[in-house]
């Protein structure tokens, strides 16, 4: 394989005196879906926050061969094309669906094919087109997740970070969301890092996986192989 587009080396981070990440290293290659699975408090969300420039860390993160500063500066990270869909969706509830999508293109320059991408997002999520002028807060949970993903697509991501897209959603909606994730990866060629509690679904969707436990990477490898690993089956897939 060629060079990875995202490389995380010996990353550690803490909230005050509480250490959330001890030492994590991982690689993401162009065009793949990588999933990070692990129990509550394993440090999954912290890892994404570090990559997105939302919190300070020690260690090194390189994207396309360039070192990311390690400073808390999410705007600079967004400009490089790393876009996060935060946990719990975080819809702008007072803004209309259309305005939410426009916010996604916040750091892009005027022109820049924003209209074309807007049309594509509406084509990808027809439900959003129907509810274009409705307030974001009035959508159902599934629709809000779609809006959050559509909003992220508006930023023209090279790397999409998804934090628990299945959280609080009905199984039938979750299936729909994951179909869309695969479509984004296949059709729009977006590289995806996926954090998920639903390990079975995550391993089915991803190409490769990392298993994180108390701030350390315990296992990593091909997603299908990990899904058959007896240890993983025992701990995360319920036997």
């Amino acid at each position: 394989m060629s060079e990875p587009i995202l490389k995380v080396e010996n990353l550690s981070a803490s909230y005050g005196s509480i250490v959330a990440l001890k030492s994590v290293s991982m690689e993401v290659y162009e065009g793949e879906i990588v999933t990070i699975i692990g129990a509550n408090g394993a440090g999954k969300t912290t890892l994404l926050s570090c990559i997105s420039g939302l919190m300070p860390y020690k260690g090194e993160i390189t994207f396309h061969g360039e070192k990311l500063g390690g400073k808390v500066d999410s705007a600079a990270i967004v400009e490089r094309g790393i876009i996060q869909v935060p946990e719990g969706r975080q819809i702008f509830s007072e803004l209309s669906v259309h305005e939410n999508l426009k916010m996604g293109a916040y750091s892009r320059k005027k022109g820049d094919d924003i209209q074309k991408d807007m049309d594509e997002v509406y084509a990808l999520f027809p439900r959003l087109a129907e509810r274009r002028d409705q307030k974001g807060g009035s959508l159902s949970g599934g629709e809000q997740q779609m809006l959050a993903m559509g909003r992220a697509m508006m930023a023209n991501p090279k790397l999409l970070l998804l934090d628990e897209p299945s959280m609080g959603l009905a199984p039938i909606v979750v299936a729909d969301i994951f179909r869309t994730i695969r479509r984004l990866n296949r059709e729009k060629k977006v590289t995806i890092v996926l954090i998920e509690q639903n390990a079975r679904l995550a391993l089915k969707t991803a190409n490769r996986a990392y298993v994180v436990e108390t701030g350390l990477v315990k296992l990593s490898g091909d997603a299908k192989e990990l899904a058959n690993d007896p240890k993983v089956r025992d701990l995360y897939l319920g036997g």
Binding site: E79, I83, Q90, I91, F92, K102, Y106
Partner: peptide, 23 residues
Amino acid sequence: SKTGRAMRAMCSAPIASSAMGVN
């Protein structure tokens, strides 16, 4: 304007607005 949209966005979901590149 775009700034006004960012203001309202920050008001309802500050983490998401910074994840969209709003300082």
